[in-house]
Simulated assay, not measured.
Amino acid sequence: MVDKFLKAKEQGWLVLVLIPLLLMVVMLGGLGVYLWHVDAVVRAKFEGQRWALPAKVYARPMELYVGSELTQQDVLGELHRLHYQPGTAATPGTYVSSANQVIIHLRGFLFPDEQVPEQVLRVQWGSAGIASLASTVPDQTLVRIDPMIIGGIYPQQNEDRILMQLKDAPEGLVPALLATEDRNFYHHHGVSLRGTLRAVTVDLLHGQLRQGGSTLTQQLVKNFYLSDERTLRRKLQEMAMALLLELHYSKHEILQTYLNEVSLGQAGRHSIHGFGLAAQYYFGQPIQDLNLPQIALLVGMVKGPSHYDPRLHPHAAWLRRNTVLANCSMSMSSAVPSMWLMYIYRSA
């Protein structure tokens, strides 16, 4: 009788031990299947065609050649419409004008029939029109100025972007972005434990999801793969995808994709994605031509494109821009901060 009782008791304990173990195995198996699925989703989109780009429609480019009847004012008017800046002609997108002469630092442009390289062009006028044309590119008898965009054919998502390579980013863009959005970008693996704990603390104090605690990788995941839903489930999915993204791809690839994917406002029905298009939309210039305050303004918009839109909320955009400049001054070498702070004091 006692033996039967002990045997039944042992079987009961065995069941109590086995059931949790089986449940744990099932849960781990389910988690493994889920992560395998998420990993496949992450790699499929990141390695495939990442974006559907709109087809751009350009105006007829202005052609410069000896004997052309274009006047100096015609050329200056075109440069103004293309947002070329008067200056020293030392950088692309600038020019110097004097009596009967304009020196232009052309940006360069890929036409269907040829690649017009970046070059410095000197145009001189005589009584009958353009009298001479001299360029830093040899054997140039006809030069076309980069044309103006007049329209586009957009994909179904109504997204627009101008793709840029990380190597083509202006000098201050990446330092400003990292100093403001993710100082430890090169030291974490997709998720910041400190940032997450800080965000969880704030969320618990307010009883709702108010802070994201997101790294640049998490921000990219949210924009690239997920919706704007603010729930704990979506946050956990975001963290898992960020870890997988960093597992498969380099920081260089992730940062370059972020620069092209981040949302920076709305132009009518079309979403503005990436710093390349944002530079054209807000300043009418290629991203490479922007100065430090302009770069800082765009970086500041990452936090809230509608709230910091310089056209709708200029004062808020100005304050946020100064915050970015100050962030950079604190995170960069001792020689650089003065350059960033100079713009804050000048515009205060």
Rank of each mutant, 00 (worst) to 15 (best):
D168Q: 13
I287S: 07
I104N: 15
M342V: 13
T180C: 00
P170R: 08
L173Q: 01
A317V: 11
L204P: 09
V137G: 01
L220P: 08
V120E: 07
Q219M: 06
Y249L: 11
A40H: 14
G274K: 11
L28V: 10
R81K: 14
Y258W: 01
G126E: 06
A279N: 03
I272P: 01
N158G: 02
E114N: 06
V41M: 13
A55Y: 04
L64G: 08
D39G: 14
S331G: 06
N158T: 04
S338W: 11
E253Y: 10
M330R: 05
L245S: 10
S127C: 05
L226S: 11
K303A: 11
T94L: 03
L247R: 15
T141C: 01
Y95H: 03
H273R: 12
L319P: 09
S329V: 05
G172V: 10
S135L: 06
A316K: 15
H83R: 14
L193D: 08
A131C: 05
V42E: 02
V33H: 11
Q156I: 04
F275H: 00
E229Y: 12
Y225K: 08
W36I: 09
S271F: 01
R210P: 06
A90M: 10
L197Y: 07
L173C: 02
H307W: 07
D182H: 00
L76E: 07
V120W: 02
G265H: 02
P286E: 03
D228I: 04
A128P: 00
H80C: 03
Q294W: 00
S127M: 10
T88G: 10
H252C: 00
T88M: 10
T231R: 13
E78Q: 10
Y308R: 03
L64W: 02
P310E: 10
N327S: 04
Q266M: 12
V120G: 00
L298W: 04
I272Q: 02
V15G: 14
D39Y: 11
S68M: 04
S329W: 07
D113F: 06
L197H: 09
R233F: 15
S329A: 08
L236Q: 13
F283S: 08
H105I: 02
T196M: 11
H188W: 03
V123Q: 06
H315S: 14
L205K: 13
L277D: 14
Y249H: 12
G304H: 11
L21G: 10
S214E: 05
L312T: 13
L64F: 03
P170C: 03
H248M: 10
L79M: 06
L31P: 03
S127E: 12
D309H: 08
W36A: 12
V33G: 12
Q294D: 10
F46N: 05
F185C: 01
